[in-house]
Every structure is written in structure tokens, then in C-alpha cells.
Design a protein around this nucleic acid. Structure first.
Lengths: 217, 217, 217, 217
DNA sequence: CATGAATGAGGCTTCATTCAT
DNA sequence: GATGAATGAAGCCTCATTCAT
């Protein structure tokens, strides 16, 4: 993403990585705006000026972090899901796996969330990319009849929303994974939400009007 | 919430409100950290020092705003839902209504989201309160058999997560309500997720194992 | 001292006095620069604006306080000393009495000390007045042969210096009177310092040279 | 004294010293509270931010100044006194020397005096240290019979009080040394106060009671 | 490749003082 | 005679960034 080249030797790579890690800790614990470059370089064990050999600005290293999260998540999620033969299972497995990932990368996850208030564009693009990938999978799954009909983007968005909040509630706030029964309901929630409607000939209710009638008996 | 008393005359009340509105605009458009008190008071048409007659600090006015959102939302949502006779309908109506609310109070909504990175405790308590209220409704609805069994807290979190993301995607990012078909899928998503499982004698699949088997045929 | 007239009714007098007392407490406890008018008026139980009906500025009320100390001290000291028939006794009694006075009016005493760093002129004039009065007494006492020859101003200054430091050490720092044996040595110190030299025919040493000789035996 | 490390190169040392000197001038002329960091850095010829590389706050540089005075005084006084063979001579020489020192370091001396109203603890500890050292010398001198019996602390305190006031009157207020006859009386004052009582067999009065009797004849 | 001293803009906050009621 | 809301100047301090070594 138009990133400064900077030193490229092995030593240089190590410094760059040290800065990235340090920034992750620093942003994650203090928040972007309360973090300071001097504290980052202190954590990384380099001089202040060194920072600018590798990153053009405080915001650029944030972008690098979001980028990093993007790649990590993609890899991690695709691994987590590779054994699922059914999209619903994949989503369920994905949610559970995400909880572990978010816990392990709490700081990084927090940074991504905060990026919305620093560089909305990058945050937006992060989630858009994520949603698009989701949507594509969902779309194909719909064609296979594995999941319920409907706008795949909306479904993707909904799934991400659920995961987002879970990630905030447990890994970030409480620094632990959700309790098992909580998790079970969550999985049931999304599994149910995605599961295909019974065939129309079954005479089942599916509309709002239907439900309202029933409610007014 | 431990708020500075400050001036109490009618004139004072007006000034206090002007500051609150101005802060909402300012935080909403620039973000908390890029907002400045001087800009807030300029918007409000008062001198800088006047700010501190009403709010002890930049953070305190943020808290006042989140508090304000809390009360507004509560009132707005209960109105929106009062005609629903069924919990599922209430949630669906609530979601749709929230989209309108979030659009109209974009700035305020953004402020609440950002509060996580300023004063995590207040943000956390905001959503905890919300989730608790949700959970209570859901719990009762479960007893009435209106919605699916499961941990009501988990369900509440899931619903909030969905709404949260929708609110970010459309009102905040695109400054419009979601398109109708998007909205429809969303409603279907949560309605399905909440709807009670068919009675067991129907021989329907409800378990993960079941699904997996089916997926591997 | 060119003091603002302000309201002069009985009620007005009470308010003026309340402000003066409040300022004394406030300055005494926080120091002049850390004291605030708003805190003074709060202590006095009046509105902020009221302050300026009685005193033109923060510095003016300080001047009023130093003035007040001046009058109080003068009265108190002359009472304390009126029974002494010998100047040395008067000074000794005066020192002891001053310790009690300083303890009782700790705040006021501190304010006078601090005034040097607010309005050097008033502080200087306070001590000059004091020293002049002292010097006059000492001068007469010298003529009566009660005390040692020498520049009475220098003697006055020395005596004040001793009292000043004692007042700082015990009443202000430790909020108590000096212990008795400490006090006794102090009294012996000034009594000795002031007592007349033996008559010259006694052949006693009185000069530095003399002492040095003795030192170099 | 828990001082910020700050830059440590030769250049850094120079900057640190420049700031210290500038602060001394600034505090000395305007007083601590009317002094401003920006004025100090202007005097020192550096940018405002540079100040905080060396001193954590306005108060810390004050502490550094008092500390500096402490060391300077100690060195200067011990030099001034090293030729005295008799404690009384040492005190007399010390007083005279202090007048020169106070004149030359007027600003620094004023700063030390004002420190009482900024950070009472440091001021107190400054004078306590001074008094303790004095007291020790006096105590030994008493054992050698060079000076009068009595609580050495009280004597020390008295001597410091005298010097303190002299230092204020002439070097600080009038920016000159005391006139010679003034000085002479002063020296006589302390020399007399410290000189041992004549041996009892001489029949001289030494008690208060004695004096009182004599006064009432 | 790295250092670290220096910069200076900019923000929050306090508070003496004024003034309309 | 008193009120108290409003003012706005001024100061401390932080920190991203630059630059000479």
C-alpha cells in the first residue's frame, strides 16, 4: 500500500518487524491517539528517528497493521474452514475459530476496530473486503442450496456483525473465550439464520404478515 | 453521572444544550481526538472558558453524549416496538427503526462507537445495559414460546452485533438507509435465527451432527 | 491604603470581613498563586462578583491582609511587652509572645511572608516599619545603657531575623510552639547578644583580631 | 533528586545548563509564578519543547535550582571558613562571606526563599540540612569551650535567621552589601551571642532573674 | 543503518475580571 | 447590595516530525 521502502537488509527487516510489533502493543494497549512514537521506538529498542526510516508517519504504521491483520485473518480463517463440507458448518467453525484468533491477537483486533476513527477508509475497505469474500462463499452456497436465499451481502454483513460483537465482548473486554453455552447459542443462532427455508409446499409461515396474524389471535 | 452542576438558569440550560449539540457535531465529524474544545465552543457560539462551567473536561462531555444517546435510544426503541405483539416482530421492527434512528443521529451514533477508544468503561456499560434489556425481553419471549431456546444473552449480543454493523455500513458510511432488499434479507436473517425450532416429532434436522452427515453424502 | 470603599452598611462590613477571613485561610493554605477568587468567595459564602465590590483585585486583598497583620502585631506586641522594665527583658518577652502569636495566626503569618513574592514593596515596607520601631526602642535602650552599643538598625534586623526563622520553623512548619529548652537557648542567645559589654577597663577581648590571636596560640 | 535524565551528550549538557541559568534569571526577576517556560526557553535560546527534554516541569527545575544552591553554598562556605581557628571567627567570617555570596547570586537566593511557597518540602529540607550542619559544628565547638552552652540547633537556627534577613535586606532589596558599620554591629551581635559565659566566680549576671532584679531596682 | 537532540504547533485548562440582571 | 454567567487571555505540556552527526 505505497509503503516506504526503507532499509531492506536482514537487519532492516528485523527492525521493521520490531517496530510493527511494538506499535501493535502500544496502539492496542493505549489506543492510537494516546500512543506515542517515542514509546513505540522505546518498546522496539531503537532510536526515535529510526521509526521514520521505515514508516512515513504514525498513520502509516497503523495502515500496515490493518494490512497485516487482513493477511493473517485470511490465512487463519481459510485454514480453519478447510475441513467443512457445508457452508453452514464453515460459518460455525469460522466463528469459533475467530474467537480464538481474536483472543490471541487482542491488540491487533482492537487496532483494527479503532482504525475506523483514524482512517475510516482503510477500516471500511478492510471490512468490505472481508464481506465480499464472505458474500461470494455464501452466494455459491446458496446455489448449492446449502443456505437460505437472500442477499448474500446482507448475510455476510450480519455474520460479521455477530462475530465483531462477540470479539469485543469476550476477547477484548474480558480477555477470555466465551463460555461454552454462550458459544453454543451463538452457533445455533447463525446456523439457524442461514439454514434454508423448508420447501414452500409445506405451508409454513415465512412472512411478517403471517407472524402478525398469529400474534393477534 | 457525577456531572458538574454548572449554571442552572434558563440561560444556562440553553448554553449547556448548545455545547452538547456542538460537541456531538464536532466529535461526529472529526472524531474525539481531532475535535477541539475551541472548535466546540465556536460552534456553540460561546467563549472557550464557558465550556468548563458545564463540563469538567472533554471526556466528560463525551460521557454526557453517550448518556444522552442511551436515553434517546431507549425511548425511541420502546415507541417503535410498542405495537408488536410478537417478540420476533418486535426485533424486526426494532432493527428497521434503528436504521432510521442511526441515520438521523449519525454523529451521535458514531460518538458512541468511538467512546470505546476513549473511555472503554462507559462504552461497555452502554452496550451491557442495552444487552441486558434485550436479554430480558428475549428470555420472557422464550417462556412464551415465541422464540427459539438458547442463552438469551447470547441472542441479545448477536442481535446487537447485527444492528451495530448495519448501522455502520449504511447510516455512517454511506449516509443513507439500507436498500430495501438488503433490509429484507437482514430481517429474514434475524427472524429466522430467532424463530423456534419445529417440534421434534417433525423429524427435522436440528443438530450439527445431522448437518455434517448431510453435507458428506 | 487607597482601598476601595464598597458597601459600608453593617451588612457590608460583615461581608468585607468574611472575605478577608476567607482570603486569609485560602492564601494561608494554598498560597497566593494557587488560591482562587472563586474559592475565596465560596468560603465566604458570597457570589463571585461580590468580591469586586470590596476589593479591587486579588492583590489588593493581600495588601489588606498584610495591613491587618501589621495592626494586629503592633497591638499584640506592645501589650506583651508593657510589663518589661528592661529592654532585654522586653525583647525576650517579645520573642516568646511572637511564637504564640505566629502559631495562632499561622495563615496570616504565612501570607505576610509570601507577600514578598507578590508585592515586594508592601512586604518590604512591613518589615521596614517593624525594624524602625524596634530600632527606636533599641536606640533609647542603648542610651539608658541597657543594651550593647552598635547600630540599632542592625540589631533590630538581627532580632527580627531570629524571630522570623523561629516562626517559620515551629508555628508554620510544625504547627506548634518551640520546645522549652529550644526556646530557652534562643532567649539566651538574644539576651547575650544584646547585653552590654563589660566596661573597657576590664581588658576583655572584643575584637575579631583579639579572638584570632587567641585562636592561633 | 529523581531528575529526568534527558540528553547526555556535550551539547545536551550545555543546553541543560543554559536552561538552568535562564530559569534562575527568570524566577529571580519575575518570581516563580509569574515566570513562564516560554520566557525561560527564549532566554536560553532553545525551543519551548526542548525544556521538557531536561526537566519534567516548571517545579522540577526549581528543585534543581535549590539543589544547585545547596551545593554551591556548601562549597563556598567551607572555603570561606577554612582559615578560622575558632568557631566564633568561623561564624563571623561565614556571615560576611554569605553577604557577598548572596549579592552575587541574588537571583538564586531569591529563588530559594520563594521555594517555600512552591514546594515547602524542598525549602524545608534545604534549611534543615543547613541547620544540621551548623548545629554539628556548634556542638563540637561547645565541647571545645569555644562557644556558649545551649541547644546547638537553636543556636544554628538563630544564626541562619540573622543571615537570612540580612541577605534579604541588602543583597536582595538594595542590591548591595551592607554598609560597613551595619556589618560590624551584626558581627558583634553574633559573636557576643555565641561567646561563652564568663566563669561563674566572676559574679556576672547570666540569668533572666538576675536581669529582672537589676531592672527593678 | 542508526542516532537522539531539537523543533514548534496546538491543545486543554484555569482563573481574574466584567456585566447584565 | 448581590448575583452568577460569561469572557478570553495566557500558560503548561505533549508529541509527531526533522535533521545534523
Amino acid at each position: 500500500m505505497n509503503q516506504r521502502e526503507g532499509p531492506v537488509t536482514a537487519r532492516g527487516q528485523k527492525t521493521r518487524q520490531a517496530l510493527l510489533d511494538a506499535a501493535c502493543e502500544e496502539f492496542g494497549s493505549k489506543g492510537f491517539y494516546n500512543a506515542s512514537i517515542s514509546s513505540i521506538t522505546r518498546r522496539a529498542g531503537v532510536a526515535q528517528g529510526t521509526f521514520y526510516l521505515y514508516y512515513r508517519s504514525k498513520e502509516e504504521i497503523l495502515r500496515a497493521l490493518v494490512d497485516h491483520m487482513n493477511r493473517s485473518m485470511r490465512r487463519a480463517q481459510s485454514e480453519a474452514v478447510q475441513n467443512a463440507n457445508h457452508r453452514v458448518d464453515a460459518e460455525v467453525a469460522g466463528l469459533r475459530h475467530f474467537m480464538r484468533f481474536a483472543l490471541e491477537h487482542r491488540s491487533l483486533y482492537r487496532v483494527v476496530m479503532e482504525s475506523q476513527f483514524v482512517d475510516p477508509e482503510i477500516h471500511r475497505s478492510y471490512y468490505q473486503t472481508l464481506a465480499d469474500r464472505y458474500a461470494e462463499h455464501l452466494s455459491k452456497a446458496q446455489q448449492r442450496g446449502e443456505i437460505r436465499a437472500g442477499d448474500p451481502c446482507a448475510q455476510a454483513w450480519a455474520l460479521i456483525g455477530v462475530a465483531y460483537f462477540m470479539g469485543m465482548r469476550f476477547p477484548v473486554w474480558e480477555e477470555r473465550e466465551p463460555p461454552e453455552d454462550f458459544m453454543a447459542t451463538m452457533e445455533d443462532f447463525i446456523a439457524t439464520a442461514l439454514s434454508p427455508a423448508p420447501r414452500p409446499d409445506a405451508g409454513e409461515r415465512t412472512t411478517k404478515g403471517d407472524r402478525q396474524m398469529r400474534g393477534s389471535h
